[in-house]
Amino acid sequence: MSFVSVNIEQGAETPVKLTRRALAKQRTRERVLAAARRLFSERGYEGATIRDIAQAAGMSTGAVFASFADKSELFEEILTADYEVIYAQMTQAARTAKTVDEALLGLFGVAYSFHVEQLPLLRASISVSWTRSEAAERRARNDLKHIFKLIGVALQRAVDEGQLKKDIDAKLLAEIVWDVYVANYRRAVYDGWSVEALLARLSDQLKVIFAGARA
């Protein structure tokens, strides 16, 4: 049920002394990523070709392919980088909350704030998630486990603290919570809802979802 890819546990990279060549390669990657981010936002995933991206980055398509195997790898790398930025904040927001509702509103609030600022890219990532290749789908699903783990931890804590019943189906509840979180983006995309409006709606939806599960 994902629309984003997260790739959090890449393992700490050991610091290496970069050679001049490695530095140049790194700069090339960054230029490609910046150009790709802009074009995906403007034209969507299908609408932005590697040729366009290379041109916008001021290099040959061959140079782009030297850094990225294909367009989907390039796109996933952008989403992964974004998720690495917000994942720690989402974890933190969930950890410091007092109730399960607060925890979920906290962690999804981080995501809403981040994505509403760059809606076109979010739209492209949601759009792609419905038609991507099987390999890309597998990677994304695997990566999304991190977010579901955060939701799961919040639910488990609520059970332990007696906010939710002991016999809840946590997996099912997490799925529904995720569904409403994602579905709400439509309001931001088409109806111009603010982060506050999205969170107010999510808060009401959580009450509906948890109504039968409260201890």
Binding site: Q205, V208, I209
Partner: peptide, 21 residues
């Protein structure tokens, strides 16, 4: 609000179909 929540679950269950190609 109940309908809104049900429809979100309904709509995003199609991700199962997307995931299965």
């Amino acid at each position: 609000l109940l309908v809104d929540t049900l429809k979100a679950a309904y709509a995003w269950n199609y991700r199962m179909a997307a995931a299965a190609g």
